[in-house]
Amino acid sequence: MLELRLVQGSLLKKVLESIKDLVNDANFDCSATGFSLQAMDSSHVALVALLLRSEGFEHYRCDRNISMGMNLGNMAKMLKCAGNDDIITLKADDGSDTVTFMFESPTQDKIADFEMRLMDIDSEHLGIPEAEYHAILIMPSAEFARICKDLSSIGDTVVISVTKEGVKFSTRGDIGTANVVCRQNTTVDKPEEATVIEMPEPVSLTFALRYLNSFTKATPLSNTVTISLSSEIPVVVEYKIAEMGYIRFYLAPKIEE
């Protein structure tokens, strides 16, 4: 028996909106720790890891570890039917091949349930070792989304270079070139507006903008994004989900031909 009640149901709606275009089908894993997912895009280039800790749910019952295969497009369609203020409860009986999403309006005057068929998904689970990152960049998530969107109208790839002066995002394409430099800025009124660079070592890496743009669909989940960079290993683009966990995207840097 599985029953997870999430008062802030909009979080789950935002999670699905942020990954449904990157990943088609995925197994959601439910254990005492929480509700999690790890999945690759269909071309096995990018990886997404989600954790919603059990403590973040108002009610969390998971009698045994369970893995539920879902088509994320279909799940997103169902969650779109929940209001932004609705409480969302996920329910599944042992051995059932369906999951039920229950949506309750905040005033309890409307209750809806949507039942979705589960799928058998043969997915690999990858081990992600702890890594030491050369540079960790924390910036407003909307700013990062803006830069990725702007640069993708000029070029296909972005070079992210971190030095003690700041972080530079550069691209080039047929029509020209573009550079955006963000300096460390911690003297802001609100901490979520700060740009912080934790930089033991300078680093410069090239990434496909198509994927970074896809990751920025998680922007509504968090005011800030944390970008961890190290040469020759995948970048981690992390959006913290308040009080509950995170969504992390992994993408390997491109290699010069």
Binding site: L126, I128, T157, A252
Partner: peptide, 14 residues
């Protein structure tokens, strides 16, 4: 520009 490696080149099945 450049070659895009798969994420599976970096992380192994666990």
């Amino acid at each position: 520009r450049g070659v895009q490696p798969s994420i599976t080149n970096f992380y192994r099945s666990s």
